[in-house]
Simulated scan of single mutants.
Amino acid sequence: MNLSIVIPLLNEQESLPELYNWIKKVMTSHNFSYEIWFIDDGSTDNSWQIIENLSQQDNNVKGIRFFKNYGKSQALHAGFARTNGDVIITMDADLQDSPDEIPELYNLITNEGYDLVSGWKKKRYDSVIGKNIPSKLFNWAARKTSGVKLHDFNCGLKAYSKNVVKNIEVSGEMHRYIPVLAKNAGFSNIGEKVVIHQARKYGQSKFGMNRFINGFLDLITIWFLSRFGKRPMHLFGALGVLMFVIGMLSAGFIGFSKLWKLYHHEPAILVTDNPWFYISLTTMIIGTQMFLAGFLGEIILRTKNNEERYKISKEI
């Protein structure tokens, strides 16, 4: 199997037949052995019926239907788990990603030795305020935080070697940062290719302000996981010990000042009237809690059960 194409979708009934015909034309003209995985992420229109019809017409078409909308990351996770291709292509179902880009992306993986190649929609047809500016902010922050020098992390059109998709864990809404996940997993040969971006032909964009906020929260999460995800005690334990030591030093200062005043026969205030008492008490409590948080994180990390975060209704 040369190619596996994974396409997550939500309510794209108008686009699917045209997208399928376009992909088939490209695959046939380049003599690719291929499979297409349509992942229906809880569509409420006729998307699944169209996928079933396409599957009956073409054995290369396969599909998964979720019970409800679990998110793009979960859809990609399900698709990656089932792919058989040596090269995996992901793309959106809204016809904004061009299948004509697939042969060159395939070549970059197989002949140029890249582990992952991400598309770069250098010229976009989205709303400047609604999507372009947030996208630029995302990409700037992701580059600075991760060290992965890509212009367009959120582009759905990407190519991966089989080893990458079988060794990364895509969860939550981390699909935006798959290149970062790949880098953290040890895949350093990550490239970028300028791709054609087309205006949306059918339906409406699923982008909203909640995705803008969630994207930055996910960026913070992935920064933390990349550094302390396998060793939470190194962060919380160290901070806990530091806070506890500050508290102990504060308590020592209180005791020393009281003894000093007693030695010099000066009137000494009650310990509870000294503001340093509350500083030391608070920091010791916080330090203990942070140490326990790191300890519990280590226990959870070693006993967690990697259950799937989605439920599949149908699979063809």
Score class of each variant (00 low, 15 high):
G297I: 09
M174L: 14
W223E: 11
F224H: 10
E308D: 11
R211A: 10
I102A: 02
E12K: 13
F244V: 06
H151N: 14
Q49H: 07
G156S: 08
V245W: 01
Q56P: 04
K162R: 15
E12R: 09
L259P: 01
D100N: 11
Q57W: 07
S161H: 00
G208P: 02
S47P: 07
G85R: 03
S55R: 11
L292W: 12
L3K: 04
M1L: 08
L281A: 15
T283A: 14
K311C: 06
L239R: 00
N184D: 13
G247W: 03
G240Q: 02
K314N: 14
I36V: 15
W120T: 09
F80L: 03
F80S: 10
Q96L: 05
I133V: 05
Q49L: 12
H175V: 04
H265W: 05
I39V: 14
Q56R: 14
S226G: 15
D97S: 11
L76N: 02
V164W: 01
S313I: 05
V241T: 13
I285N: 05
E52S: 08
S98Y: 02
A268C: 07
Q204V: 10
Y202H: 04
F138A: 00
P179F: 01
M233Q: 13
R231N: 15
N2F: 14
N21M: 08
K162V: 06
Y160H: 02
I102F: 11
E112N: 08
K131M: 14
S257K: 11
H175L: 10
D218Y: 07
I286P: 01
M290W: 05
M174N: 07
L157F: 06
K25R: 06
E35G: 05
A238L: 05
P17S: 02
G247E: 00
T110W: 04
F153C: 01
E101V: 03
Q13G: 06
V194W: 02
V128D: 10
P103R: 04
K72R: 08
R211C: 08
I50R: 00
I178M: 08
L105W: 01
A142T: 05
K201A: 09
R211Y: 08
K68E: 13
Y278W: 15
C155A: 09
E104M: 12
K314L: 12
S161Y: 03
I312L: 03
Y160A: 02
S171N: 06
T221K: 15
Q74D: 02
